[in-house]
Write a protein that binds this DNA or RNA. Structure first.
Lengths: 111, 111
DNA sequence: CCGGATCCGGTCTGATACTG
DNA sequence: CAGTATCAGACCGGATCCGG
């Protein structure tokens, strides 16, 4: 551990390491972005996203995000066919993060 | 360093995709976090971070972030020895993103 | 068809050793 | 101190296959 003698609030920044399994992955964030925009999406609807995620990657990410409880099935009682995914409460709570990220990108990474 | 995936550039359309070049990578984000906290750090100081980045990864990430103009050398006129890195203006502008991410992690991901 | 699972070549990662 | 070189293994992603 490093010394903590700064003015910035360390505790609001340090948990970043724990968030890395979510935001440290490109595809996971894109899935969350899509769900923020569209509320609920099926497996094949994710595949239609412009970024062209491949099926195996999508499957592993959906599984990961489900186990992390950031997303969940819209109708858990149904079979997988035509079942959609939506954000959980903690998944929705990422919206400010994604929005501030989008704001930054629009300002500093526009072409 | 070469581009990792040279396909159709959807990043020009979606700002989030464009931002994922930076924050879609675990180590890049940690480097930026460290620089937000410490203002300026040398190569070996990065290596002391608790996450234990390895030397080759650190070198490639510092190079990537420099080329993206998110970080820069504190004394460009000096040789690399004892030279530190700091955030550029656009790098600093990521602070709100990182803070909101930290806030989310602190609330929804137990430390 | 839909929601994945499996296979496989190629790329990237990261621990370690090494160099100026 | 600030990086390279190396190399095995993990991971990505495209194609294909499979169960319901």
């Amino acid at each position: 551990m490093k010394k903590m003698n700064e003015k910035i609030d360390w505790r609001s920044i340090c948990p970043i390491s724990s968030a890395l399994d979510v935001i440290g992955d490109k595809w996971s964030l894109l899935i969350i972005r899509d769900l923020i925009i569209h509320e609920a999406l099926t497996y094949s609807q994710f595949l239609e996203s412009p970024e062209q995620i491949s099926t195996n990657i999508l499957a592993t990410r959906l599984d990961l995000l489900t186990r992390l409880k950031l997303i969940e099935r819209v109708h858990p009682e149904l079979a997988s066919r035509n079942n959609a995914y939506k954000l959980t409460k903690s998944g929705k709570a990422l919206e400010p993060v994604i929005k501030s990220l989008g704001k930054w990108a629009g300002k500093y990474r526009s072409i």
